[in-house]
């Protein structure tokens, strides 16, 4: 073996290992660092993460620090920002509004999670199966989807809540599911049309020819391409659950087993006429602000996530792939985030 050959062999080896490491680095860059960079580069994302962390902290650490709400924690109807002891004021029966606000957070988070997860799982499953299987399965599922899509969500939820008055429990997870009863339909439609375009993509075709089982093709090849839709709908449904639950608690047609922002608003109105009497207005205002803040956080998060999934923006932030386009990015591509209402 001549020394030159040895060198070239060595070179070959080091080259492959380097390119492997390179590839690893690139994967890391694309999968982890690029998203983080995008998040960091976007003010909306920073605000969103800040706001969402506040609520997460409130729901975890907050409940341990702030005492549970109870009657006569203070005098009745102390205004907001008057005393340090009751920064958000008190209710008609002397509950601290801060206590109520904080202790209402964990059920809200549970409700959101249950509703959003349910929507996303069901929507993805139905859309994927429908698009992938086609034929009669597709026909039946899409007919169902169209019906679910047309029936207005809130009236259906209200009717179900009304009809189940006797048997429905106030368990936040159950309420979360109830509030998402037909929200999966929009996602299922979107996923289905994505799957239809993906189904005939070459690499999927190839796996099928190689005899990879359907379930594996779905989970490995198809699902990753659907992530943008899934994320968007998750956020969207989270917002819908907040809006819906607070509204229905406020008008008093959902059962509850713990304090809730909507229930606070209901009590403010029914016990102290907060709308017409200024001295009780803070009781109504504070939970409303919480709703607005949380939903703003989610809106901004959706906007930032939209950028995350926009391939053009993403390419600019992935440093190991050469950036070809010097043009300005345009975060306003038609994307699922558009559907946020």
């Amino acid at each position: 073996m001549s020394p030159t050959e040895a060198t070239s062999d060595f070179e070959a080896v080091s080259e492959t290992s380097l390119s492997k490491r390179e590839r690893y680095r690139q994967t890391l860059d694309e999968q982890v660092l690029a998203p983080l960079r995008i998040v960091w580069s976007d003010w909306r994302a920073r605000i969103a993460l800040f706001v969402l962390s506040i609520f997460l902290l409130m729901g975890t650490v907050g409940v341990m620090l702030v005492p549970e709400p109870s009657p006569n924690q203070g005098p009745a109807l102390v205004g907001a920002f008057r005393t340090l002891e009751h920064p958000f004021g008190t209710t008609y029966s002397g509950h601290s509004i801060l206590s109520q606000l904080v202790h209402a957070t964990p059920p809200m988070l549970k409700m959101i999670t249950a509703g959003a997860v349910f929507t996303v799982v069901l929507g993805t499953a139905i859309g994927t199966v429908s698009g992938y299987k086609g034929g009669a399965v597709d026909g039946v599922l899409m007919t169902l989807t169209d019906v679910a899509l047309t029936i207005p969500g809130l009236p259906l939820i209200i009717v179900l809540a009304g009809a189940l008055q006797g048997s429905l429990s106030g368990n936040p997870y159950v309420i979360g599911l109830l509030l998402s009863v037909n929200a999966w339909a929009g996602l299922a439609r979107a996923i289905r049309s994505q799957v239809l375009t993906l189904r005939d993509a070459e690499y999927v075709e190839a796996s099928r020819i190689l005899g990879v089982p359907t379930a594996e093709i779905i989970s490995k090849d198809i699902v990753p391409n659907l992530m943008p839709y899934v994320t968007m709908n998750f956020v969207q449904q989270a917002r819908a659950v907040i809006f819906g639950s607070v509204a229905l608690y406020f008008i008093g047609i959902l059962p509850y087993d713990s304090v809730n922002w909507g229930v606070m608003m209901n009590s403010a109105q029914s016990q102290a006429g907060a709308v017409s009497s200024p001295e009780a207005f803070h009781w109504l205002l504070v939970p409303m602000l919480a709703v607005v803040l949380l939903s703003l956080g989610l809106t901004l998060f959706a906007q930032a996530a939209d950028r995350l999934f926009n391939p053009r923006v993403r390419a600019r932030h992935t440093k190991t792939t050469p950036d070809e386009q010097h043009e300005d990015d345009e975060p306003d591509e038609p994307t699922p985030a558009r559907m946020i209402r």
Partner: peptide
């Protein structure tokens, strides 16, 4: 637009009712 889009319609309704309806009495309640 982002901000108003994050405020639920019933929150806006309650604010309008409170201020324009009850306090200023510009609109019926």
């Amino acid at each position: 637009s982002l901000l108003t889009n994050s405020v639920p319609y019933y929150v806006i309704a309650l604010l309008l009712l409170t201020f324009l309806g009850y306090r200023m009495e510009l609109f019926p309640t």
